[in-house]
Design a protein around this nucleic acid. Structure first.
Length: 433
RNA sequence: GGAAGGGUGGCUGAGUGGUUAAAGGCACCUGACUCGAAAUCAGGAGAUGGGGCAACCCAUCCGGGGGUUCGAAUCCCUCCCCUUCCGCCA
């Protein structure tokens, strides 16, 4: 959520910055301005009336104490007429405020000044590359062939169980997935200074609003209800990402400055309806309805937010470096950034079998945007309550990492070589053919 | 699902219609005392929104929402959450 004060004081700035995304906010900004003014006018009038009523009520109390009952009754009658106007104005305030806030929740974050202007993915500047594409002296297979030959994933039975887009990991595939999760959590907790948390996998609607998933992306989430009780529908959702619970851990709190930065990492499965994406890359495990991910979350002061973002990207890159994978880091342009983000780096890993880079991590600083939605604050050195920067990043997504790993490290004999740092967790140095 | 008891400021804990932002205690800040600290004494200190150059002023907030009343932490309705016991269950 943007700062309503900035909308009042610098409307042109807000309009310009929002226009660098996808535009189309003009009408909403104008409506917002009108609602805000209506609310403020009503607030100042009703407060004045309430002030009158408060002092009158005190007088009535005093009169009754002195047993001047007739006078008290006369005053009561006067004040009663104030009550009706107050009630009407209170309704105006509540309505305009609710409408204003609902509108505020639909506006995306403003891009940071350093973000490149652009409309789409093609406009994203590349920041750096690591390594080189794997080369093979045999004909390499793609991950679908590898998974089938080595019985890592049973695509047909996964679909039989839950429909297309759901994976059944089997044997070495299940073990590799589990080893990767363990490897990632160990790395971030022991070497990168994150505190591990294990969140619920079903999350309240208010937390989805808090991170900016809702209201805009409601159609992308799986809603759950209790049994056949439709009245419970719309309150709880399967996680699209662990960001939803973890970023909300301290919602509605005021953290002492000495506790910052807060750094959490969490493993969770992620559930995405991918509505409207049917048929697009549905084969294999590139785009699925459920995948595993280790998420990184930071809560920092505004002063250190961007330094922490750079560090977070480095933490995610380290994963790929240790696994011997080729990747590139790109900086999303204004038109390609997520709703809540002020600045985002994507990390894309090279998948030889696809001949393409696959997004495995997206690291963003949402600045105060999510903190405002969550009413998360911290108390700075001077005792002032301020909104912290809230950052999130994948460290990393698993299904695509799995793809890149097996496609990159496949051997001529059909086996998969396991990179050194992963071996203790898999308790093997290769997946046999 | 059934029964009972609870949700008050950073914590603890009073308050059951009228100077109550809310006693007392703990923690915190300032000052005095001290070489310094502890102890003691005195004082201060909540949040949100709005107004003012400022000292300050106004409104709202005692789990959420609604109602009764001139006036609600206090009475009524409703929802949420927590604790204990019973039932069921991984």
């Amino acid at each position: 959520m943007l700062d309503i004060k900035m909308l009042r004081d610098r409307p042109d700035h807000v309009r310009e910055r929002l226009a660098t995304r996808h535009g189309g906010d003009e009408a909403r900004l104008e409506e917002l301005r009108a609602l805000d003014e209506r609310r403020r006018a009503a607030v100042s009038e009703v407060e004045q009336l309430k002030s009158q009523r408060n002092s009158a009520s005190k007088e009535i109390g005093a009169l009754m104490g002195q047993k001047k009952l007739a006078e008290a009754e006369a005053r009561k009658a006067e004040v009663r007429t104030l009550g009706d106007r107050i009630a009407a104005l209170d309704r105006t305030v509540a309505e305009s405020e609710a409408a204003r806030d609902a509108l505020m929740l639909t506006l995306p974050n403003l891009p940071h000044a350093s973000v490149a202007l652009g409309r789409e993915a093609a406009d994203n500047p590349e920041v750096r590359r690591y390594g080189a594409p794997a080369t093979f002296d045999f004909t390499p297979r793609n991950h679908i062939e590898l998974c089938e030959r080595l019985s890592l994933i049973d695509f047909a039975r996964g679909a039989k169980l839950s429909g297309s887009g759901f994976l059944l990991y089997t044997g070495w595939g299940a073990r590799l997935e589990r080893a990767l999760i363990q490897f990632l959590l160990e790395l971030h907790t022991t070497e990168h200074g994150y505190t591990e948390v294990a969140p619920p996998y079903i999350i309240g609607e208010h937390c989805m609003v808090g991170v900016g998933q809702f209201p805009k992306f409601k159609d992308q989430a799986y809603a759950v209800q209790e049994g056949l009780d439709a009245s419970t529908m719309g309150k709880l959702y399967l996680l699209p990402t662990a960001e939803a619970p973890v970023a909300n851990i301290h919602r509605e709190e005021i953290l002492p400055a000495v506790r910052l930065p807060v750094r959490y990492c969490a493993y969770s499965p992620c559930f995405r309806a991918e509505a409207g994406a049917a048929g697009v890359g549905t084969r294999g495990m590139i785009r699925v309805h459920q995948f595993d991910k280790v998420e990184l979350i930071k809560i920092t002061t505004p002063e250190t937010g961007y330094a922490e973002l750079e560090a977070m990207v480095g933490n995610a890159e380290r994963v790929l470096q240790l696994l011997g994978l080729h990747y590139r880091v790109i900086n999303l342009c204004t038109g390609d950034m997520g709703f809540a983000s002020a600045k985002t780096y994507d990390i894309e890993v090279w998948a030889p079998g696809q001949g393409a880079f696959l997004e495995v991590s997206s690291c963003s600083n949402t600045e105060e945007f999510q903190a405002r939605r969550m009413n998360l604050r911290y108390k700075d050195a001077s005792g002032e309550n301020r909104f912290p920067h809230v950052l999130n990043g994948s460290g990393t997504a698993l299904a695509r990492l799995f793809v890149a790993l097996i496609e990159t490290h496949q051997q001529a004999d059909g086996s998969i070589a396991i990179p050194e740092p992963l071996r203790p967790h898999l308790r093997a140095d290769r997946i046999p053919a």
